[in-house]
């Protein structure tokens, strides 16, 4: 009984959280929202008045209070093969080929590592909110031997992330979280749309096919997809049902 109460309250908590922040990412709404949105494969991230950049092994912090004049405040050694950086509130989520690192930016000028979740060598972008981190691992000859799929970590205790779900997926790459919906680019296997209101049990709603999907940005009512042949824009007035508006072809 205790366990199920705990579980259902977690679902409620997460749902409330997800719904409450579903408008946070809406662009053009507030003048204060002066930064844009990056895809999940990015190595640059802006949080507040700071620019965080990763290269192979280091995390560089720049104060951009005056955006025209970045001033370096910190350099941290992270390890090898850093792939992506994703900011959420007072955290940075850093995807590497061997695991996910969580950094606290409570002191934004000097990030400190608080937690990590290591895994078998693979390629792995990450998106997150306050309680859950979603990581896609792409195991193959170039990335490493991990089983490809979605890995869901409970990060309410950031010092000790708990793997609560793994879901095998073909060639997952970029991903994005918007409200209770998770979009996952699975290369030739399409763009998969999941309901993750209960993050321990993602429910696949549909798969959009017709392109080789690499990365994705939800931007208001628009879903921007980076595919091998160009960029595809979908209308996501109904977030569970992307409707294609335009393919901007590479050539």
């Amino acid at each position: 009984m205790k366990f199920s109460f705990y579980k259902s309250s977690l679902v409620v908590m997460v749902s409330i959280f997800l719904f409450s922040c579903s408008k946070d990412g809406t662009p053009d709404s507030a003048a204060a929202n002066s930064t844009g949105k990056a895809g999940s494969l990015s190595k640059f991230a802006i949080a507040g008045n700071y620019l965080y950049a990763v290269d192979n092994t280091q995390l560089y912090t720049y104060d951009i209070t005056d955006p025209a004049n970045p001033i370096q405040t910190n350099t941290s050694f992270l390890g090898f093969a850093i792939e992506t950086i994703y900011p959420f509130n007072n955290r940075l989520f850093i995807g590497t080929t061997t695991g996910m690192f969580i950094y606290s930016i409570d002191v934004p000028a000097a990030p400190v590592q608080v937690g990590s979740a290591s895994h078998v060598r693979s390629c792995d972008p990450v998106v997150a909110n306050d309680s859950i981190a979603f990581v896609t691992l792409k195991g193959n000859s170039s990335c490493g031997p991990a089983v490809s799929g979605l890995y869901v970590h409970d990060i309410r205790n950031v010092f000790a992330p708990q793997l609560i779900k793994t879901l095998e997926l073909p060639s997952p790459e970029g991903l994005a979280l918007e409200g209770g919906i998770l979009y996952i680019c699975c290369n030739n296997d399409g763009l998969k749309v999941f309901n993750v209101l209960n993050p321990a049990n993602p429910i696949e709603i549909r798969t959009v096919t017709g392109a080789y999907f690499k990365d994705v940005i939800p931007y208001g009512d628009l879903l921007i997809c980076y595919v091998s042949t160009g960029i595809i824009l979908y209308d996501i007035s109904d977030p569970t049902n992307p409707v294609m508006l335009k393919l901007i072809e590479n050539a």
Binding site: F44, I231, L233, I248
Partner: peptide, 25 residues
């Protein structure tokens, strides 16, 4: 529905991007 490429910023050796206000990093 009519989105298209309209221009190109030449930055040799570039691989990353972020923007704050009107400043591109």
């Amino acid at each position: 529905a009519q989105a298209e490429r309209i221009g190109f910023i030449t930055v040799n050796g570039s691989s990353q991007i972020s923007i704050k206000d009107n400043y591109l990093y």
